[in-house]
Design a protein around this nucleic acid. Structure first.
Lengths: 395, 395
DNA sequence: CTGGTTGACTAAAGCGATTTAGTTACGATT
DNA sequence: AATCGTAACTAAATCGCTTTAGTCAACCAG
């Protein structure tokens, strides 16, 4: 088995700085544009001719080995005279030569490719994590494949295999329950897996629950409604446990009649809307809601409004995640912020670190801290009660 | 040059249906699980042994050629007895063999990989297009690389080259101005390029402008403020031209003092917010706004609100795109819907079609139709005037 | 004159498939 | 008995690169 400690290809001492810092460069062909004297046997360039290493070599009257060695700035190539090297670079530049990544990968067993699997690509949550992942990976010269499984077990099963067949060097799973035991490093964002070989990046749920509940508690809310996440979401359970703990600590009672759970696997504010309507139909009084995520909080607010309840005057609402649209809701959504982009970045960093320093030791878990973002959807509780509070204004 | 008309590999008549319809399967190894009699010379399986074709062949006492032929259900393999075939499948299944995609790609010159370049991965607009692209590509057995360039010219230059070096078979560019002349099919979503080799998927801007302006006009709005897109956005110019035309047709005057333009390249409602504040500072009366996109409309609404103007009672606002959060704004955003997901799907379909039916003929442009989505951010104009309309309620 | 260095390259194996052009054995035909 | 046909495989080239182990000539030291 090949050691993964080898550095990225073409990482060389060239002083030419690339646009994207420190990426494994695909040979900077421009380095020696001068002195391009075409050698004795200039290979004829047929119209559709692919520019391969061999083509260059023939053109220069050298062997592919030499060209490769020089272009990769291999130590072995030190003995090759500057003049020859320049010729090689010049030719490469002239023909705009780019090595074939497939061939190189096949040979070196390095693909610089990561697989990412997520439930959806179009959701606020995943989207932010993805952007953190993407930024780091591309900066480091990797590309990635994304596959979204919409929580379908078949796909959750299938995609990792397909990605593996494509020789990805690592896998990042976002909000996806994990069963596999893969031969490559796996990092799960919001995973909660205790699997061999996976690093979990997760929020400090305890702290998150405390932040939200303390905030509501201090504002005087005692009857709080909760929207739990769907069964399949890997955060649901941990989040709920943390809420129960935090509530206990505060002496806040959780009323069974005021807790509901999201249903449906296509994420949409509508899920929160439906669940809140059902909640309101019970005529059980409450002065605040804590939703599983921002998207359901947004739906909840709509449902409340439709019943003539003002947010936050009659009911305070706290979301979770701080997706981009949370800030631009009206009222701005008070929410527990997950550093989603950062979590993505950490996931990417971790997976790359595990790939390159292929040690047996890797972190089983990395915890990140939440942050309470107070906007306009929460305020002091009045004599809070769904029935009574309808037309009061106390903010 | 190899013909691209060859069908996807492993597309066979096997009755076993795959999870994902009609994808080029990576050999369904389960097809013959019975009768696995290990041949005379069972290759020893070392712990870290990679399962290659050669390994299987050795194990079975056959040549790699035979195994490959059978597994690919090549016509040449017709003469190979069922018994042998079964043994091969059984062994493949037993060892959970998956062909190495890199090797296969290198040989066949088919990578089943598409490159996608977008400004951001985390924005509502791109995100929806991406999800349309992704759905179609994965269904067809392709994977894709995404690269986001944040409108940086260097990256817009660099990424296509890197993707090409990775042998993508086609490229989809979303909202990205295009200069390159690539050797592979290129599809641009909202591109407005007249480049050789690129198919543009674009909205019928004329119709879009008409929908929005007619709507406002019918509601009685005569003084409409406009927010134009940033210079770099490929839609900006076409959209504006269409607006001018539609306005002329309606007899609506466009006031220079009421038109502003977004600045800044990190998309955020804040851009719309800033621009609207500046607009309001002019104290030029208007009763409606037409924003370049939903995201700026959302910021605009916030700015209006801050000045004590109600939306829609005092100022009606029309957005553009119909990103997901538009529906869940409060008030719900009236907007011109671009069928973004569909545009993504069409882009994917088109690029695949161009890859497989490698004809010279390809559509230069595909136009999709917008749709007006009336929600709550627009209503009848009163004696509309920023100064006067402050405390009226006429909806 | 011999042997050792060094400089400048190159041959060739190998990564893991696919695919064309055979080869071999065997039974059937002429 | 020679030929043919067919069934059942296989050899080997190839895709485009990397990389180790040489090769070969020139130069130098002893």
């Amino acid at each position: 088995m090949m050691s993964r400690t080898s550095q990225a290809p073409n990482e060389c001492d060239s002083s030419k700085s690339s646009i994207v810092a420190s990426r494994p460069r695909l040979w900077e062909t421009a380095s020696a544009m001068s002195k391009q004297k075409d050698n004795g046997t200039p290979a004829v360039r047929h119209p559709g001719q692919k520019i391969s290493l061999k083509f260059l070599a023939d053109h220069l009257g050298l062997s592919p080995a030499t060209v490769s060695l020089v272009m990769n700035r291999s130590a072995v190539a030190d003995s090759i005279p500057k003049a020859t090297q320049d010729q090689i670079f010049a030719a490469a530049h002239k023909f705009n030569y780019r090595p074939n990544f497939l061939a190189r990968s096949l040979r070196t067993q390095r693909t610089f490719t990561i697989g990412v699997i997520v439930p959806e690509v179009s959701e606020g949550y995943e989207t932010l994590v993805l952007s953190g992942i993407e930024e780091h990976l591309l900066r480091e010269g990797y590309f990635y494949f994304v596959a979204s499984h919409h929580h379908k077990p078949d796909l959750i099963d299938e995609y990792p295999k397909l990605l593996l067949a494509r020789s990805v060097e690592g896998l990042i799973a976002v909000d996806t329950p994990w069963q596999h035991d893969l031969s490559i490093p796996v990092v799960a964002v919001s995973g909660h897996n205790e699997m061999q070989g996976v690093t979990n990046i997760m929020l400090d749920h305890r702290r998150a629950a405390e932040l939200a509940l303390e905030h509501l508690f201090k504002l005087g809310h005692r009857r709080v409604a909760f929207i739990k996440g769907q069964e399949f979401s890997s955060d649901t359970e941990a989040r709920w446990d943390a809420i129960v703990q935090a509530a206990t600590k505060l002496g806040l009672t959780i009323h069974a009649k005021l807790t509901t759970q999201l249903l449906g696997d296509v994420p949409s504010p509508d899920l929160g809307y439906q669940v809140t309507r059902r909640l309101l139909a019970k005529h059980e009084p409450f002065s605040a809601m804590f939703a599983f995520n921002d998207i359901s909080a947004i739906g909840a607010i709509r449902a409340l409004r439709e019943k003539g309840l003002r947010v936050p005057e009659d009911v305070s609402v706290v979301g979770f995640d701080d997706i981009q649209s949370a800030a631009y809701q009206n009222p701005g959504l008070t929410t527990v912020r997950q550093p989603l982009r950062k979590m993505g970045r950490i996931a990417a960093e971790t997976v790359l670190r595990r790939i390159t320093r292929d040690g047996m030791d890797y972190p089983k878990q990395i915890t990140v801290e939440p942050e309470l973002v107070v906007r306009e959807s929460t305020c002091k509780a009045g004599r809070a009660n769904v029935a009574k509070s309808r037309f009061r204004k106390d903010c």
